[in-house]
Write a protein that binds this DNA or RNA. Structure first.
Lengths: 342, 342
DNA sequence: AGTTATTTCGCAATCGTTTCCGTATTTTAA
DNA sequence: TTAAAATACGGAAACGATTGCGAAATAACT
């Protein structure tokens, strides 16, 4: 089905051997310029396309990179992938993309499938359920190129790209305090996640630095279902110990908060000031009131992941991906949701 | 690097021939139950993973489906892909995903790359620049399984999945008219696009049915850059012949409209009522005022695309994808942006 | 002129599967 | 009892590319 001419047929047409044609197409020094030209023009004429599987089989590489992430409906992850694609596309690499839907079992299944070499490398952000990382450790121990972004595994000695989670969260929380907040809530996904750990730490330290003591009831761990999250946040906002400020460690919980607020008569920013890690800038400005955001350099993170991998995969004898965590800073944009004067 | 045991090594370990082992693993009738068990358990013990490229080369199929779409940062396309992945994943298929960024040249490049068989089929939604469809026609003529969704090519005789663009647009426009609008604007991307043609037709017919005559200055064709779109829409809203209602044929133009409105003192819905094709329900409810939407069955469209393809690819002798256009209806949800009483 | 380099190309092995044959052994049928 | 058929497995070709090695033809050198 559909497959056009192959190397042998092309060679027959040219009255040359397949090896010569292959070398000519790969611009080998062993072939005269004259025959190279003949070969190339005939290849174009017949629209010859090398079979990628034959090549992969022989060369033991696929020119494919796999991206594994927890969800697709997220401007952060979409932008990261746009960044990855931007550089991989220039180098002729293809992208296999998998969403785990925050499900470890699915993540394990995908990772194990990927161990057979279908992709040359994996770029990944772990699911919020992931605590057992044996599937990832195994992959890495086998020498499989693996790099993390955003939601990383600290224990696996490879390169990780993150934003300055701790500092951004610290600064964001400090901003709320400066705006007069004293009872600041913190919304997070699973506590297993690297990003919640760091962002939570930044939040706590900012409270401490201001002489405020953290209130356990103001720190809520959310789940995957939006409806439940909205309800949990509403309960928080209506509780006896209601917060006057709120830090959301991920985008979707900020949206859930706006939904929750809509169901009460709480006013933002008068009664409650909100700041969130957030990547969808267009929407941040459209919320009412507009949302103060900690904007992660999503596209840039994707680009850096890809650049490093491309270097590792294309240069002849590259060392392993170094065990380092590279941080690209976020940018805080203050909007109406945290302004004293609204 | 990374690759474990292969079939020959596994066979040697079992003192069997590779052919026997292959057959045993593929549950061939020619192999006794006894040896099958031995083989399977040894394969598990050694964690044998068949090389996908060897298999693809031999079988001439990749267990991979390519998805080509105009942009990634869109809840519609994200949901479609989630739908596709949901069913392909169950059948052990992998997804190569490409974004054309609304660029025909890039689309052509991708499609031509895909002709070498790297994927068993292509699911695609064309770019807004795509008027010359020769690259797609060629693909299809070669017998390559190709199906369209949303932004389709009518001239290519294969299966297309869309929503009821005409009817939804008609109903949406009629809704505006019923709410008292008399000068209704229409926002669209390129007029080449199947979806704008249909939605535009629905809009025009609804006007006609109500005895209203269309005003050319109220029909604006937008581009790719958000800033420019916002400016163009602002000019529309401030023009002499300003509209009192607006139909946006795609999600991002509705967001641009909200941005544009923010820069004026126009009030929604008092001065301007808005309805839009829109997939991000969570956001629709969060806009101020909340947005009346025509919600496309994005996830469902993805599922149906994938189901059809899987059937075509996995059953032995399937006919070609029939030349038909399957429509899955959208649902209109009325929110504050079109309500008379706000 | 004779020997050595250099250029240019072909042969055949290889990557890891699957599968078409062939064959030895056992079972069934006549 | 013998021929036919079923069972269970191995050998080798094939998929389509790349590449080590060898070899012919030409060029360069002594």
């Amino acid at each position: 089905m559909s497959t056009g001419v192959n190397l042998k047929e092309l060679a027959a047409e040219l009255k040359l051997s397949p090896s010569t044609v292959s070398r000519a197409l790969n611009d080998s020094y062993e072939i005269s310029e004259e025959t190279k030209k003949k070969v190339v023009s005939m290849a174009e004429k017949l629209n010859y396309q090398p079979n990628p599987f034959a090549r992969s089989l022989r060369e033991n590489k696929s020119k494919t990179i796999a991206v594994v992430m927890p969800e697709r409906m997220s401007s952060f992850f979409s932008k990261v992938i746009d960044g990855i694609e931007e550089v991989t596309h220039q180098h002729g690499y293809h992208l296999l993309i998998y969403s785990t839907h925050e499900d470890v079992e699915r993540e394990k299944k995908i990772v194990n499938l990927l161990m057979n070499g279908r992709a040359d490398a994996i770029v990944m952000s772990v699911s919020s359920q992931t605590s057992d990382i044996s599937h990832l450790a195994r992959l890495h121990e086998r020498g499989f190129p693996l790099i993390f972004f955003d939601r990383i595994c600290d224990n696996i000695p490879t390169t990780k790209f993150i934003t300055n989670d701790y500092e951004s969260s610290f600064e964001g929380t400090r901003h709320l305090i400066q705006q007069g907040c004293r009872k600041i809530a913190f919304l997070m996904l699973s506590k297993e996640l690297s990003i919640t750990k760091e962002r939570y730490r930044g939040y706590l330290d900012a409270l401490k630095a201001a002489g405020l003591s953290p209130t356990p009831s103001l720190q809520v761990t959310c789940a995957h279902e939006e409806e439940k999250n909205i309800e949990a946040i509403r309960n928080l906002l209506l509780s006896e110990d209601r917060p006057d400020g709120l830090v959301s460690s991920v985008e979707k919980l900020a949206l859930a908060t706006y939904h929750a607020v809509k169901k009460t008569d709480i006013k933002i920013p008068e009664d409650l000031k909100i700041i969130s890690f957030f990547s969808n800038l267009s929407i941040a400005g459209l919320l009412t009131p507009s949302l103060t955001t900690i904007t992660q350099p999503a596209f840039n993170i994707g680009e850096e992941c890809a650049k490093l991998l491309i270097k590792k995969l294309t240069k002849p004898r590259q060392p392993d991906l170094p065990n380092q965590t590279i941080s690209i800073p976020s940018k805080i944009t203050i909007r109406a949701s945290t302004l004293v004067e609204y």
